[in-house]
Design a protein around this nucleic acid. Structure first.
Length: 774
RNA sequence: GCCAGGAUGUUGAAACUGGUAGACAAGCACGACUCAAAAUCGUGUGGAAGGAAUUCCAUGAGGGUUCGAUUCCCUCUCCUGGCACCA
């Protein structure tokens, strides 16, 4: 039999007998072995996906042989821009294309030989799944974590969609590399910032790669500092700035506002006595800046521009006037949107001061001992040092001075210690077609009746004027003939049939309109691991109620309490700040609402393993580069086992590597040699020579030990090398049945098909998947 | 600019808490089998010198600790990834 027949025979048998189907009701020792599900376009899996899944499966098989009830589900993250764009490209409707893709993907996935729990698969575009994604949205709303606001958002003119901050890479769309523009739009947001501190604190308590933990810490970006409020000269108004370096405040000589700052709007509204000329200048500058995309700003480099407002802030420490400017280098959504300029000790401030001929005062002397006036950029001193020209702070180290001045400012009432985060709220809205409709209904009548302050809601956001969650889920995504996005950025669902677009208001029963945005794909994937173990075990849902614990949830509480959290989550490190942060947030929220038992632990993925990336010719595999390697042809030629073995042999699993197909023949050769050894002891076949039994046993035990240690550390390449040495030894010394049995069991992690075949060949009755680790 | 990770033969790589560097493969060369080729099997394979045993030099560069360093410490170079006008 050739490998194709063998693969067919065993995968059929595994499926028919459900041998890998975990007992979810009464697990002995459970092990939830999860791999990040693929985000497919119709081109199918590439070798990189196969690498990821194989490595994760080796881990699962190892745990299973150690006696765990391993649950290893798979599904498709099929909603989203990726699939939609592909459908547009090939001129098909995403809903039709999804069925084609699904079939192809599952075929490929079943070929690679993983011990998947096929009965528990899910697809995010299945209404049975996304009804619960929508439910999650309504719960966010009901608990005050979803809100809508007009916001400046990142707009990709090529994908014609809004992007989350996380999806913008230095001003470019992460998907198509087009320069991202800014647009004002009404958007739905989730208050992930409310969880910033917990998301940060819990990082210390999880077993994740240091690299990913650091990314998350940086992304959350906690900063301790102080908000300083300055009086504005000849006015009752004040301006508040955020700074982490109040120690240098004796050297503060100006204040800069971002263009979004409220003071700027007030200036233009004649609330100050600025001249008309100034107002005109400010207006022009603000308009010009708002039009600029991030990439324009980056292209301009550090060139500082701005406009004087005609106002002065008063530095309480020095009693000096600090002119207030509007500038584009201050970001509206960082800190208070206003910054105090200390040109001697901040490079940007120095550049700005030079441009506008503002005073530069040295207040810190650093390690180089330079006490002279600061006239060059290189002299700007941003590091450790001792205070000078700073009144009561003189002579102190900067850290001591920071504490002292903060105490002082709080005493004086001019400052207040604050903690800020870089993390922003999660923008959920997408003006696209291929996603779950956001299950909200807007009633104009109710909105008009709503008087702010009268109907006080327990949590902010709840009771937003006129908005109600849909009561009966799912809100099924209608089949739109023309689903394509347009340049005006209007959601495609605006073009849906009136019967879909308009519905009854849940409150006043009047005519109301549906939300036409769909949700971000990352919402689909933020909770899927909770769904797998409960597929087909839960009933319909109604969204507009906060349900008592355990009733009508997206999951079966019993099973979930037994199988969650995820014991090993295996995936690519590229999801370090997107998916992996959102999932943690959703888990925490669900626990806070009482939907998830506290005993499941504070994190969904206590252990995360980040595998490496398979590249081709030094570059990431991508359609645009045309360097996709399709695993099918290799599986056809050498068999799934040989490919699995080869991929795992390239290097340590966390390292990835460059795919070259020369090495794969070596794996075929190796498998053929094992086959020969197996034949030596197959009943009825020629007798093997009699080897030194003791010597063999020693070699065997050494090999088992080496393989075990290597597999535990995910060093699959070393494990395979050890098995190869073992085979070399057996060929030289001759072999016995115990050694062959051990070899097959070790190999079963990597070559599940051949292992089954050999196991039956040597006359063992039970199949390999039931055997214990040797 | 900041943070993290890395650099070992022709190539992928190995080396446990400091102890024979290069396991295991790939490639290449030669040989066996064959009319021939493929496949398979055998031998060799870091560099230099030598017929050989052997000797010297080699883990990005330089320095240090040590009886002994790929491994620990310092400086530098180059790659790879993340963040970036973040106050």
């Amino acid at each position: 039999m050739d490998h194709k027949q063998i693969e067919k025979k065993w995968s059929q048998k595994w499926k028919d007998e459900g041998v890998y189907q975990a007992d979810l009701k009464k697990p002995k020792k459970k092990y939830y072995n999860l791999m990040m599900f693929p985000y497919p376009s119709a081109e199918g899996l590439h070798v990189g996906n196969m690498y990821a899944f194989t490595g994760a499966d080796v881990h699962g098989r190892f745990k299973a042989m150690q006696g765990y009830e391993v649950f290893e589900p798979i599904g498709l993250d099929g909603f989203g821009i990726h699939s939609e764009n592909y459908a547009i490209k090939i001129g098909k409707h995403p809903m039709d294309q999804a069925k084609v893709s699904e079939k192809h993907f599952y075929e490929q996935l079943s070929r690679i030989g993983n011990r998947f729990n096929w009965d528990n698969r899910l697809e995010t575009y299945d209404p049975e799944y996304y009804r619960w994604t929508q439910w999650l949205f309504t719960q966010m709303f009901n608990h005050g974590l979803a809100y809508r606001k007009k916001a400046q958002v990142n707009w990709c003119p090529s994908c014609k969609t809004v992007l989350a901050d996380e999806q913008v890479e230095s001003g470019l769309c992460e998907r198509c590399k087009t320069a991202v523009e800014k647009r004002e739009n009404e958007q739905w947001f989730f208050k992930i910032t409310q969880y910033a501190q917990r998301l940060l604190d819990n990082i210390e308590k999880i077993n994740w790669p240091e690299k990913i933990k650091i990314s998350q810490r940086n992304w959350i970006g906690r900063k301790e500092g102080i908000n300083i409020t300055y009086k504005i000269k000849d006015s009752k108004e004040t301006v508040t700035v955020f700074t982490t370096r109040p120690d240098t405040n004796f050297g503060a000589t100006f204040v800069v506002l971002g263009v979004e700052h409220e003071l700027v709007a007030e200036l233009l509204n004649d609330q100050f006595s600025s001249t008309n000329f100034q107002k005109k200048q400010i207006k022009e500058y603000v308009e010009k800046t708002l039009k600029k995309s991030d990439i324009d700003r980056l292209a301009e480099g550090r060139e500082k521009t701005g406009v004087f407002t005609g106002l002065d802030a008063i530095n309480d420490l020095t009693k000096k006037n600090m002119p207030i400017f509007v500038t584009d280098f201050v970001l509206g959504n960082v800190g208070t949107g206003a910054v105090v300029g200390v040109p001697g000790h901040d490079k940007r401030d120095f550049e700005f001061a030079k441009e506008f001929k503002l005073e530069v005062i040295r207040v810190v002397v650093g390690a180089d001992g330079d006490k002279s006036e600061i006239t060059k950029l290189e002299q700007v001193q941003e590091n450790e040092g001792k205070m000078v020209n700073s009144g009561f702070l003189d002579g102190m180290e900067i850290h001591e001075a920071t504490e002292k001045i903060m105490d002082y400012m709080e005493d004086q009432g001019t400052g207040k210690r604050v903690v800020t985060y870089r993390l922003r709220d999660w923008c959920i809205s997408r003006q696209r077609y291929w996603g779950p409709p956001i299950p909200m209904i807007y009633c104009e009548k109710c909105a008009k009746r709503f008087t702010p302050g009268v109907k006080k809601s327990p949590t902010p956001g709840v009771g937003m004027a006129g908005w109600y969650p849909e009561e009966n889920l799912p809100v099924v995504l209608p089949y739109l003939k023309n689903f394509k996005p347009t340049d005006d950025g209007k959601p495609p669902l605006e073009r849906a049939e009136k019967s879909w677009l308009f519905t009854k208001c849940p409150k006043c029963k009047g005519k109301a309109k549906r939300e036409t945005d769909v949700s971000d794909t990352f919402l689909d994937s933020s909770w899927y691991f909770l769904r797998y173990s409960s597929i087909d075990k839960v009933g319909p849902c109604h969204a507009n109620k906060v349900r008592p614990f355990g009733e009508d949830l997206p999951w079966d509480t019993d099973i979930t309490n037994k199988f969650l959290p995820v014991d090993a989550y295996i995936g690519g490190a590229e999801h370090a700040v997107l998916h992996l942060l959102y999932s943690r947030f959703v888990w925490m929220a669900l626990q806070d609402w009482g939907f998830l038992d506290k005993k499941l632990g504070i994190e969904p993925f206590p252990f995360l393993y980040g595998h490496g990336l398979i590249i081709k010719d030094g570059a990431k595999m991508s359609k645009s580069k045309g360097n996709i390697v399709n695993p099918d042809e290799y599986m056809d030629k050498y068999g799934a086992d040989a490919l699995r073995l080869y991929l795992m042999f390239i290097g340590p699993y966390d390292q990835g590597g460059d795919f070259k197909d020369t090495g794969i023949r070596g794996m075929s050769r190796f498998l053929a040699r094992v086959e020969k050894l197996v034949d030596c002891i197959t009943p009825g076949v020629k007798k093997s020579p009699t080897p030194g039994v003791e010597l063999l046993a020693r070699l065997r035990h050494k090999t088992i030990k080496r393989v075990t240690e290597a597999v535990e550390k995910f060093k699959y390449n070393v494990a395979i090398a050890a098995m190869m040495e073992f085979v070399n030894g057996l060929e030289k010394m001759g072999t016995d049945k115990d050694s062959i049995k051990a070899l097959i069991l070790l190999l079963a992690l990597f070559t599940p098909y051949m292992a089954e075949e050999w196991w039956s060949k040597i006359g063992e009755e039970f199949s390999v998947h039931q055997q214990a680790w040797p």
